[in-house]
């Protein structure tokens, strides 16, 4: 059995989750503070992957980053970077596609904290960033864990968007979900079953781990 799709999937999910943690958590904080029309628009845009068919998102990413047009052409000519049919492209698509799964739970948890926690910190002379780091983040640990696991697990299961932008190149863009589809197409049900079972097991263990870590009090990773 060729395990490269599994390793590639884990690598993609790890990088995507790491990048989204660094970018998505401060972004969720920004969204959680105050309300403006601009923030509503931004939030709507990052929520779109939840409701859009993955193939639609993949199609637009394919158009946007095609080396023959616009941004994709500029990136290719200026930095020699190509997002279409490459692992970088999968990472980019995954970050966009999984962003609501990182931002949503973190933003919601931050909004549920009493405003007086941050206010108390400000009266002690602490900056918003110090307050975020020392007071707000440590008090939403269960939601942070839920967001990380949800993002990782969701990336493991991506299909439409990665197929559109990455295709099916063995060792480069052929992740486990595509390998399952490929195996079924070839009537190789044994391989499809092996890949499926591994994906199912990893996801199940992750979800169980969240519940154990949060001592059965975690918010359901399913929302």
């Amino acid at each position: 059995m060729d395990l490269s799709p599994i390793w590639l999937t884990l690598k993609l999910a790890g990088i995507t989750t790491g990048m989204l943690f660094v970018v998505g958590v401060p972004f969720a904080w920004w969204l959680s503070t105050g309300r403006s029309f601009f923030k509503i628009i931004i939030e709507a845009i990052i929520t779109m992957p939840l409701v859009l068919p993955p193939s639609v998102l993949g199609f637009y990413l394919l158009l946007a980053f095609s080396p023959q047009h616009g941004v994709g052409k500029w990136l290719h000519n200026t930095f020699d970077v190509q997002f279409v049919f490459s692992f970088q492209g999968l990472v980019l698509a995954s970050v966009i596609y999984s962003m609501p799964f990182m931002v949503g739970p973190v933003k919601s948890a931050l909004q549920q904290l009493p405003a007086s926690l941050a206010e108390a910190s400000y009266t002690l002379g602490k900056s918003p960033w110090q307050t975020f780091k020392s007071v707000l983040l440590p008090n939403i640990k269960p939601s942070l864990l839920t967001a990380v696991v949800l993002t990782f697990a969701h990336t493991l299961g991506e299909f439409g968007v990665v197929l559109m932008i990455g295709g099916n190149i063995p060792g480069v863009t052929r992740v486990a979900s595509i390998a399952v589809y490929d195996a079924v197409e070839k009537m190789d049900y044994a391989s499809a079953n092996n890949y499926s079972l591994i994906l199912f097991s990893i996801t199940f263990v992750l979800v169980i781990a969240v519940f154990v870590f949060n001592k059965y009090q975690a918010k359901s990773p399913l929302g």
Partner: peptide, 20 residues
């Protein structure tokens, strides 16, 4: 002037203690 620069102490009605 920001709250941080006013050098005040504030005791909140619901305490606002940091659970962590």
């Amino acid at each position: 002037l920001s709250t941080q620069k006013r050098n005040i102490g504030f005791v909140f009605q619901q305490y606002a203690l940091f659970p962590n």
